[in-house]
Design a protein around this nucleic acid. Structure first.
Lengths: 237, 237
DNA sequence: CGCGACCTCGCTATTTATGGGGAGTTTTAT
DNA sequence: ATAAAACTCCCCATAAATAGCGAGGTCGCG
């Protein structure tokens, strides 16, 4: 088993193009004898990259119906970081049930396992296996392979990042300590007056920091600046 | 080697108290023959939990001097998600160099390897090994153990989360679709007028969503609401 | 069927944030 | 050593956000 993992990782390491990654996913599917293997990035604007063995019809359908916004897998993975088996999720809402049925109609198996992966600058990706198995067999499968899958998912993400250079286009701007502190105060809910008091500076000085932060972050307004500072990871709440 | 990993993981699984986790870290240190092993949560307010083999003096010193705010390890790990070897980092700033010397004076080794771990609701933790080795030996050590360490780090974090129930105290409030859309627009830098146009609703209606989001999220103002929505993962940029 | 939650719209007054100037000291880096 | 960046403070006018009031239609769940 471990040797197989090493083989797969070697293939992954050797991948030099996005097509190679696609091939890796296909060999993963064959190796694990599952229906589908998928890796994709997620953000609220839309996917920047995705690869996998889903049919083109299902991918188009998924995007067309805007399933991204109601998919319980996506929603839960955003908030957890532990992998989820699909059957654990809440499929009670009407929209979710419809989507589930639609997925089955498009060739997906009844079992799924998705590993959320969080990267730099707010990058977020999912690594998914989909199969047709009984609940018991699937649980056993996950039990046997969870660790290998986690490693594969993370290595895959590392490789995908190398190609796509997420967020590397505009290197995250560096804010000065006071600017970061200002952003942090605002992110925690303080008004300008409160933040200025917290930092022991005049409200006007605080404003200067907010302005300079805004410009450095390329933000339209304060809320946008704080949002960018948070999602690039230069501040946290 | 793999058997050792299994043993360590078994011990980890069996941990029932925070003291047990401390013991696990100590046995990890002994097993890997390093100077220190550390696990801790990080947020801008301060640590909620930390365990490890650093001396109490160094921990106190670290907190007292507010090294958290200048530590290159912390800073880089926030933005990357791949593990970092300390020597790779930028220690050129004066503050960083002083901190580094201070660390050596407090019994830390000259080599370090830190694995950033990102959890639900914006949880962020670090799993660190510190040792005294030559650059070559350390590189070899990392090469040999990187995967095991990643698994250990993630399993450790899972266990720590079970105990501390990060963010579980106030279950993340659910926002309605329109509320989420409103938050998302604001996070992407739109003004109220722009967001209202984007959503094809009156500016007043948008305001109602912002208000209700604010109340649900327990936020003081719009910026705070967006910050919370982002850091709990219910929206993304 | 009714209740609650969601979606939609309007008005007024007050508070707060933003954008544009300018100007001095201290710290850091080359 | 000298330049660049960071930190600090002030004024004024305008744009935007907040707080408070109210009202009606739709949808799903029990």
């Amino acid at each position: 088993m471990t040797n197989r993992l090493e083989d797969l990782l070697s293939t992954l390491q050797a991948a030099a193009t996005l097509e190679d990654l696609q091939a890796v996913l296909e060999s993963l599917r064959d190796h694990y004898k599952v229906e589908h293997t998928v890796y994709h990035w997620v953000n609220s604007v839309g996917e920047r990259y995705g690869a996998g063995t889903y049919s083109a019809e299902w991918v188009d359908r998924y995007l067309e119906k805007d399933y991204l916004r109601m998919d319980p897998v996506i929603f839960v993975c955003f908030q957890r970081f532990t992998p989820v088996s699909w059957k654990e999720l809440d499929w009670s809402s009407k929209a979710a049930r419809e989507m589930w049925q639609d997925a089955l109609d498009h060739g997906l198996g009844n079992q799924g396992y998705t590993i959320p992966i969080r990267g730099p600058n707010g990058q977020f990706a999912l690594f998914t296996l989909n199969a047709s198995l009984s609940d018991e067999d699937w649980a056993q499968f996950i039990d046997d392979n969870a660790r290998d899958l986690m490693i594969l998912g993370h290595e895959f993400n590392k490789k995908a990042l190398e190609f796509e250079q997420w967020g590397e286009d505009g290197t995250t701007p560096a804010l000065s300590p006071r600017e970061l502190a200002s952003m942090s105060c605002l992110a925690r809910g303080m008004s300008r007056a409160q933040a200025a008091a917290e930092l022991n500076i005049s409200e006007h000085t605080l404003r200067v920091y907010i302005e300079s932060s805004r410009h450095k972050l390329g933000a339209m307004n304060t809320t946008h600046a704080v949002a960018r500072a948070l999602s690039t990871g230069i501040i946290i709440i």
